[in-house]
Nucleic acid binder design. Structure first.
Lengths: 231, 231
DNA sequence: GTCTATATGGGGATAGAC
DNA sequence: GTCTATCCCCATATAGAC
């Protein structure tokens, strides 16, 4: 009952075993509530191994995130590039912009299939559990990629004020991040009517919902907004 | 630096002091990472008082949630009722349905103004940090209210398949819950361009985005969906 | 690199005096 | 109802033998 469903292969070396196990546990139980004892026992390595290889528990988390995020962002870049090529000088349609942004996120994980969306759930949990920490991760790994996609959105929706682009991209990101940790709630509240295991359906619905959201009329500009630093 | 900005009034009795302080700390630092020692010190009550009055740390959390959620849901009910009255036999417009659902959530908190959205942030954190626990809270407090609003949405969008109604309501709920804990990210990523403190602007943008999202075309119905239990 | 043993500090809960 | 003192659990991290 305490075991992971898919046991970590013995062939892997210590570092890989730790990383893989930690991802599973952080995704399923959260960072603070997962102890190094639990990780090392599950990974069948020594308790001291985490501190030896990664310096600290947070060091392990940082490495884990880096390992997943870097290739994910490369995928995003190349997908957006491909869509740009398809559309030559035309702006990339918004649906495609978000496809390039979302799909690599949902496809991230151990090669061979991360069917449970462990990385996604971990990200979703962390952004609520350690918002300060995630902001630093964000600064390190997402600044450039976000700028790329914000620009693509601006091209697709040239009439939208920059402030609104940020708001709506923020909504999109929030939805994407929370979609995994909140799935169980949908299953219950829909009395099982919604196929929450259908990742493809989730992605399509997310993209459709987000793109439609971008069609919403601009919020009333009140006095507060006037003092913005709009260049 | 360790003190809460607004100190708990001495006049309050022990239970109230504990509840108020706990809300602040759970919202700001999360449930697991907030100790009873921290709460009781900040509230200037005895360490044993929490267990005496609430049985356990989780008992305290349950009471705290109950205290906020019950009146919030009453507000939702009465607002939806008022909109129904305004529209006599016509369905309530979707914008109004979500206004009745969202506004009491953002208006929940200590009377006199919960300007920092403590209750909201607490809810957002908890639903990521303790999803299992929140599902039980959900079952206890949200079943009826959700049914009420799902029905109102069905009336406003009679052509939408029930499955899609659940999906989109789920997206709306997810956005609402996460909007507070994720605000800081928007502030950073927009380089301060977005007025994230402007709750009214946030509510308007949320409603607009969600209602527009409900206009999205229905996702392709693949083979998996066919086996649904659509009554 | 790996292990055991331990240092050091924190947590929730409770017994029992007042 | 309130307090102190304490039980017993668990955590992260590290020192030092192998």
């Amino acid at each position: 009952m305490n075991n992971l469903s898919k046991t970590v292969p013995i062939k892997m070396d210590t570092q890989e075993r730790i990383l893989e196990t930690a991802e599973q546990l952080f995704a399923r139980r959260g960072f603070e509530t997962t102890s190094l004892r639990h990780i090392t026992k599950e990974a069948r390595v020594n308790l001291a191994a985490v501190n030896y290889h990664f310096g600290s528990k947070e060091g392990l988390l940082k490495e884990l995130l880096r390992m997943r995020i870097v290739p994910m962002n490369e995928k995003r870049r190349s997908m957006l590039e491909a869509f740009r090529f398809q559309n030559s000088t035309q702006p990339v349609p918004l649906e495609n912009v978000f496809e390039a942004f979302l799909r690599p996120f949902f496809g991230t994980g151990s090669p061979g299939g991360d069917s449970e969306g462990l990385f996604l759930r971990m990200m979703g949990r962390l952004s609520a559990e350690k918002p300060g920490f995630m902001e630093s991760i964000y600064q390190e790994h997402f600044r450039d990629i976000q700028e790329l996609f914000i620009n693509a959105i601006k091209e697709a929706r040239p009439n939208l004020r920059e402030e609104e682009v940020f708001w709506r991209f923020h909504f999109a990101l929030t939805l994407m991040l929370s979609s995994m940790t909140q799935r169980q709630r949908l299953k219950i509240s829909s009395h099982g009517r919604c196929q929450t295991d259908d990742i493809e359906g989730l992605i399509e619905r997310l993209i459709a919902f987000i793109c439609a959201g971008f069609q919403s009329p601009v919020a009333s500009e009140n006095s507060v907004a006037a003092m913005g630093v709009l260049s």
